[in-house]
């Protein structure tokens, strides 16, 4: 437990030259939007999962997992997000410039450019000309609704199972079971739920990226989600696994409930702002 951040394990496990090479490739892959013009973007996208896989598997084999500590959590959250971004629907959505160019005035042009502070103008411009009608979610009667159904029912699987542990930390619900045991029993379901929620969420996001990026509630929700995931796999997990005092347990559980409730509120509020 001395190494709960996990840097020691990671330092002993990582192959530094190879990792450096991947890091450089990763940064170079940010130039993919430019490379796409010369036709090499697809190659980058094709080879990308393989490269990331060879990075992840040795870590998993040596016991560096998402729940192993701060390092593991940060590593797998970020690479997971990056992986989804690389092969998932967001990427083509952001880059399908050629489809939309020449399709006339965008019906969803936005005037507020405050977002540009953290998104490069180039990417933003490309997203703004992405033709929304090319997304199955927008030209099929059922696709969007069905995706939302997956998203919503998986709340119980992801956030709900985390809340069961929170309630236990608060001294409610499954009291006969230790928080440590409950965490182990629910952990895999939570992870499965988070994967479903995030994947379906990214699909929903792709239906209108700019609309969501400019939506205050959406930005609040995503911030709370990232905070929630990191909190869940670090402090929350560390406390649940320890012999916590009732006060510490209650505080940890309460903070967790508040974070996840704010994620849910943020999600609902997207439709009301």
């Amino acid at each position: 437990m001395n190494d709960w951040i996990g840097l020691k394990t990671a330092g002993a496990t990582l192959n530094l030259p190879i990792t450096s090479l991947y890091t450089v490739s990763l940064l170079v892959s940010s130039l993919a939007p430019l490379a796409r013009a010369s036709g090499s973007g697809a190659a980058v996208r094709r080879n990308f999962p393989a490269g990331q896989g060879t990075g992840c598997f040795p870590m998993l084999r040596h016991g560096v997992t998402m729940s192993q500590g701060l390092f593991g959590t940060a590593f797998f959250t970020l690479t997971g997000m990056h992986e989804l971004h690389g092969v998932g629907p967001v990427q083509p959505a952001a880059l399908r410039r050629s489809v939309a160019v020449g399709s006339g005035g965008s019906p969803w042009a936005v005037g507020d450019h405050s977002l540009a502070s953290w998104q490069s103008d180039t990417i933003l411009d490309e997203m703004m000309v992405y033709d929304l009608n090319s997304n199955p979610l927008n030209n099929n009667d059922w696709a969007f609704a069905l995706t939302e159904c997956f998203h919503i029912t998986a709340f119980a699987l992801s956030i709900g199972t985390i809340m069961l542990v929170d309630f236990r930390l608060l001294g409610l619900g499954l009291k006969h079971e230790s928080a440590r045991k409950l965490l182990k029993d629910t952990g895999l379901w939570t992870l499965a739920g988070l994967v479903i929620v995030i994947t379906s969420g990214l699909v929903i996001f792709s239906s209108d990226p700019i609309h969501y990026l400019y939506n205050e509630a959406f930005r609040w929700k995503i911030t709370a989600l990232v905070v929630g995931i990191i909190y869940n796999y670090t402090i929350h997990r560390k406390v649940a696994m320890s012999n916590f005092s009732p006060g510490v347990g209650a505080l940890t559980g309460l903070v967790s409930v508040l974070i996840w409730v704010s994620v849910l509120f943020g999600g609902l509020w997207i439709a009301f702002v």
Partner: peptide
């Protein structure tokens, strides 16, 4: 969410 997890 919370009630759903209990049923689940």
């Amino acid at each position: 969410t919370a009630f759903g997890a209990m049923i689940l």
